[in-house]
Design a protein around this nucleic acid. Structure first.
Length: 744
DNA sequence: ACGGGCGTCTTTTTT
DNA sequence: AGACGCCCGT
């Protein structure tokens, strides 16, 4: 027997051994899906005399790809030798980089993320003299993305919607948006897939090359494919028909992104000779947890028949906690985490808090910090979404692709160099009327009569800066170029002068970005700026979050798919939050919410807590929502209420107020409010040097003017003051370093 | 005419 | 937390 079949159950063996022809593996949660995929690949190489370079495995996240790669290297005990194991999007980028000239782009094209798309869409709306109120950019973006997911071109959309004025206008926006993308030599995420398909359709020889090369294709999370991805896979597999798709219809949670559950439900219709293998033994959760999950998902219709079972017995009951408000909820959970660590010998890394929306993480963060529980947050405000990081990336993009108007506009006055809105407007007009890029318009600023001399000079300065950097691009390494860029823009110096906590953390982030670059240079063959930018664009925080060891994890239910934790908290289980209000109207959407709930429950291996809050402050308003219907769908005999430690916090949740009272019985470190005697030496302050700082002191700041200290934290050099300035609002300052002096 | 500041809104989920 | 529109001071 092949060693790659060892330790597998019969169903798993069958899936691994079925090599030729189409195969659908219906893999329930925790049924060893990744194991089957990797063993199957190893088995193919061993038994079919197939080179690794003839195999392609597609995933949805970089994390999944990375994990698969690592396990494969372990398994076959050697390098992957040209095997393609990556996400749909990165595979498309790889193909497009080679062939994209055929489609009228250059290989230095950039990838626009959601924010960039929104900016571009706003430009389109403006240009067509439409109102952002009636054509909301987010809605338009959704519309365009939907069209692309369904492979509908702007022209087709226009013809299709010809009769309806509004829909037609949306299609016109789509058309203009697409033209602008091309002018900017840019693609959005959807374009990566759509254009690869277009390439294959228009250039059959290119398609044939890839069809011939990849004799075996595997797709993970097949239930999440949309029409475009479905077609891409089918084009690639058309010649050899050795297509193996793995998925679970019960875990399809990306319908809003165009994922079509029918792709998995209809696989047997698409491939009449398809073999179907069901993996139904769960190796992850206790019986109680699994039974509860099965019970909840049974409320959905139109599922593939499936009965997940486990050899495990019993386990702990699912614990329900009904909190007064979101603070009570967070405090309860902090307490439970501390208990688990102290009594049950659980590690922090065994624990996850899962919520429906990113906005819910805030409260937990506050209490986790106060309790000194180490945590990491996946998603939310992503590292790559930070303003300073985006600014630097924008600079790099311009050096690679000066046609990228979105990036030029972003940083033409960052850091501030006196190029204001009016000047930018004039440059934009010029670029529009002459059909040239914004940067080109800036280069020709001399010819714009309406610009005054001062403005011209400033624009000239900006252009020169970029040109000098561009000229260095070829001779410098990525990290050297990065240094030059910071030096030339003085980005860090300007932040340093601010001397606020925010500014310091921005500098930290830029340093962190530097290490991303260095790491990239270390691990990648292709060290070009193109390769780096593509990498960064396709990277999500989920992929980066790994390295923080021994901390609990906070993330959305969506991000949690594919992961498992011994102890899971599902929080905010209230109607309107989960299921989310916008999904409560249609049957389909509600079922998707239920699948999301199923995903959440099945993340738990041993212990599962489910909490809801009677009152919750959200978007500035307190709302009182009943318990989520999903709680009521849990079988009573598998749950228990744990109200024992309930702390009454009243119904006016407000952060920080009588915090200590709420926290009785909870083990947390008091925040340090000691007043610190400041060392005598303070540079550039020849006047009165204060011996210490107190709350209520008035200070004068070089940039921000007069302010009052309202809060103090930390000590010694780290003494941090929150200072309310008359016109600038509250700033966090490092009192030891900030350019301030005490006033009376 | 120009630039800067303040108040408002965002957001459900992600490559 | 950030982006943007509107308003005000120079």
């Amino acid at each position: 027997m092949s060693r790659f079949l060892e330790g597998l159950n019969d169903r798993q063996k069958e899936a691994v051994r079925t090599i030729n022809g189409p195969l659908l593996v219906l893999a329930g949660a925790g049924s060893g899906k990744t194991r089957v995929l990797t063993h199957r690949i190893a088995y193919i190489i061993e038994n079919q005399n197939i080179r690794p370079a003839e195999i392609m495995a597609l995933t949805f996240t970089n994390k999944a790809a990375k994990e698969m790669k690592e396990r494969l290297i372990d398994l076959i005990d050697g390098p992957l030798d040209g095997m393609w194991v990556s996400t749909f999007h990165s595979i498309c980028v790889k193909i497009l980089r080679r062939e994209v000239e055929k489609l009228g782009y250059t290989s230095s094209f950039v990838i626009y993320d959601g924010q960039d798309q929104k900016t571009l869409i706003k430009q389109c709306i403006k240009e067509k003299n439409l109102d952002e109120k009636s054509y909301e950019p987010n809605v338009i973006r959704g519309f365009i993305s939907n069209q692309k997911d369904k492979l509908i071109t702007p022209k087709e959309a226009f013809d299709l919607n010809f009769k309806d004025y509004r829909e037609r206008t949306k299609s016109e926006l789509y058309m203009l948006y697409q033209k602008k993308l091309k002018d900017n030599n840019a693609m959005d995420f959807d374009d990566l897939i759509v254009n690869t398909i277009k390439l294959f359709k228009d250039y059959p020889l290119v398609l044939e090359y890839y069809q011939e090369r990849f004799k075996y294709i595997l797709v993970d999370e097949y239930q999440d494919t949309n029409k475009a991805q479905y077609l891409l896979v089918n084009l690639l597999a058309y010649k050899h028909h050795n297509l193996c798709v793995v998925g679970d219809d019960d875990q399809s949670i990306y319908g809003w992104r165009g994922a079509d559950i029918r792709n998995i439900l209809d696989f047997e219709k698409d491939y009449i000779d398809a073999k179907v293998v069901k993996l139904e033994q769960n190796y992850r959760s206790t019986k109680n947890i699994l039974d509860a999950a099965n019970k909840v998902i049974a409320n959905n219709t139109g599922r593939k028949e499936k009965a997940l079972w486990t050899a495990e017995e019993g386990g702990e009951l699912i614990k329900l906690y009904n909190a007064s408000n979101e603070h009570d909820e967070a405090i309860f959970i902090v307490k439970k985490i501390q208990d688990a660590i102290e009594e049950h010998y659980k590690e922090y890394s065994d624990i996850a808090i899962l919520y429906r929306t990113n906005a819910q993480s805030r409260v937990f963060e506050d209490y986790l910090i106060k309790s000194t529980i180490p945590y990491k947050i996946v998603g939310g405000l992503k590292f790559y979404d930070r303003k300073e990081v985006k600014d630097i990336i924008a600079y790099m993009r311009i050096l690679q692709n000066p046609n990228d108007n979105i990036s030029v506009k972003r940083i033409i006055n960052v850091p501030k160099r006196g190029i204001g809105k009016t000047t930018i407007d004039k440059l934009e007009q010029k670029s529009l009327s002459e059909d040239i890029s914004l940067f080109k318009a800036a280069m020709g600023n001399e010819n714009i009569d309406s610009l005054n001399n001062g403005a011209k000079k400033k624009v000239q300065g900006f252009v020169e800066k970029i040109r000098v950097l561009m000229s260095m691009k070829e001779s410098l390494s990525l990290s050297e170029l990065f240094e030059k860029l910071l030096e030339s823009t003085q980005y860090i110096e300007i932040l340093k002068d601010e001397n606020t906590i925010e500014a310091l953390s921005r500098i930290d982030n830029i340093e962190e970005f530097k290490s991303v670059i260095v790491e990239f240079e270390k691990t990648n063959e292709d060290k070009s700026i193109e390769a780096f930018l593509a990498d960064v664009s396709l990277m999500s925080d989920l992929d980066k979050a790994e390295d923080v060891e021994n901390s609990i994890t906070l993330m959305t239910l969506h991000s949690a798919k594919g992961l498992e934790f011994p102890m899971v908290f599902m929080v905010g289980m209230e109607e309107s939050i989960f299921p989310i209000s916008r999904a409560m109207n249609t049957y389909e959407e509600l079922e998707e919410e239920r699948r999301l709930c199923y995903v959440g429950i099945t993340r738990a291996k041993e212990e599962l807590y489910i909490t809801n809050a009677e009152a919750r402050m959200l978007y500035g308003r307190t709302s009182y929502n009943p318990k989520s219907r999903f709680i009521n769908e849990l079988p009573l005999n598998l749950t228990e209420n744990v109200q024992d430690r309930k702390i009454n916090v009243g119904n006016r949740p407000s952060k920080g107020v009588s915090f200590n009272d709420f926290f009785k019985g909870v083990n947390y470190k008091k925040s340090n409010e000691t007043i610190y005697k400041q060392p005598a030496k303070v540079e550039e302050m020849d006047e009165e040097i204060p011996a210490y700082w107190n709350i209520g002191d008035k200070v004068s700041h070089k940039l921000f003017g007069i302010g009052t200290i309202v809060q103090l934290k930390g000590e010694k050099e780290g003494l941090e003051g929150h200072v309310a300035f008359e016109s600038k609002g509250i700033k966090k300052l490092m009192l030891h370093f900030a350019p301030i002096k005490k006033v009376k």
